[in-house]
Structure formats: structure tokens, C-alpha cells
Nucleic acid binder design. Structure first.
Lengths: 89, 89
DNA sequence: ACTCTAATTAGATGAATTTCTAATTATTAC
DNA sequence: GTAATAATTAGAAATTCATCTAATTAGAGT
């Protein structure tokens, strides 16, 4: 896990909102894109950064790409900042 | 608390390390700067961003400026991402 | 007031980021 | 294989960011 890549990914509001949307469950690229006033290519770039950070994983279903949240990377990165090396129960 | 400013501040490795150094206790600007291979003006810019985000507070003692960590803003921002609206005891 | 130390602000420059349009890839269906 | 749909990559323009040197502010001591 590249901590640097994770925090860089978290630094943009659109990307944080993508994560927030994915908290309710997996979603296709197109459906995610429909929540923003940005073009699909622009969203694609954001998806890539989240994927590089392993904050999301992607799975193809037909012609669609389904994104889903990787909560554990998020938790590890944030607890790293707070200094909790151990994961609380 | 401007969540955007906080995560923008957290996105740079130098700034995250400044916070890590301050976890052991308050430190002057010069002492902080001595931990990095960067000029003091550059560090000053980083201090400003952390101060804008209210992640650190500053207090003058003589000719020195003493920075100290504001843990609560950090915790609030991170728990906001994880979706814990309540602060655990 | 002058000097020394600590740290900042100002201005400039090179690099990185965000966004767009246009072109491309991948998959399904006919 | 051609067309249609979903999403991507490529390339370019505008903006923002990180960093440096030089100049400035603030306080303490003589």
C-alpha cells in the first residue's frame, strides 16, 4: 500500500464523493459519472487514481465496469495517520 | 472546518511528516525545518497550509514560533470519511 | 538605534493536476 | 463482420502546486 498515492487520491473532492457513493454498494462507471457535472473521460481519470491507490477495485460485467469500494485500504491509511498500528475490534 | 482544505493539506508527504513530528510534542518552526532537506521558506508554506486547515496551531515564544498539533481536527476529518458521525469515547 | 536570530512574505519558475474534445478499445447483438 | 453501447486512452490548454532566492517583519539584547 503506497500511503502517498492513497492520500493524493483522497485530496480531491470528486474522488472523496465517489468513495462516499460506493459506500452504499458497487456501481458502474456510467452510473457514478451521472452524479457529477463532468465528462466521462474526466471521471475515468479520477477512477484511475482511486484504482492506483487501491481504494476501489473494478470488475467487468458485460460492457460495464463495476467499481466497488476497498474499505480496508482506506482504514489502514487513516489509522496510520492517527498512529493506531493495531486495528480495533 | 473546511474538509477540503484539510484533505488538501494531508495530501503532501512533507506535511504529513510535520504532523507526525508534532505528535511527540510542540516544536519550533526551525526545529521542524531541520528535519527536512528543504529551505525554510518552503517549510513556511507548508506550515501555512497546515494552519489554514487548522491541523496545527501556532504560538509565539520570543523570536520563535512554536507549532503544535490539533488532533481533534484530524480525527474529525478522518472519521468523516469513514462515516462515523459520532465520536467514540 | 543597531545588530542578531527566527521566521515570514514576495516573486519567479518548473512540474503536476484537472479538465476538455477526439479517437480508441472491449463487449454484446444482429 | 458491422453496428451499438460503455468506457477508456491520448493529447492539449488552463490552472494550481512546490520550490527556490531575495527581501521583509518581529523580537531580544547590547
Amino acid at each position: 500500500m503506497r500511503i502517498n498515492t492513497v492520500f493524493e487520491a483522497l485530496s480531491h473532492p470528486v474522488r472523496r464523493q465517489i468513495l462516499a457513493l460506493l459506500k452504499s454498494g458497487p456501481m458502474s462507471a456510467g452510473e457514478l459519472a451521472s452524479h457529477f457535472d463532468l465528462t466521462k473521460p474526466t471521471l475515468s481519470v479520477h477512477f484511475n487514481k482511486l484504482r492506483d491507490a487501491e481504494l476501489v477495485a473494478v470488475e467487468r460485467r458485460g460492457t460495464s465496469l463495476i467499481y466497488h469500494l476497498n474499505m480496508s485500504v482506506l482504514e489502514e491509511a487513516l489509522s496510520g495517520l492517527l498512529g493506531n498500528k493495531d486495528k480495533s475490534p
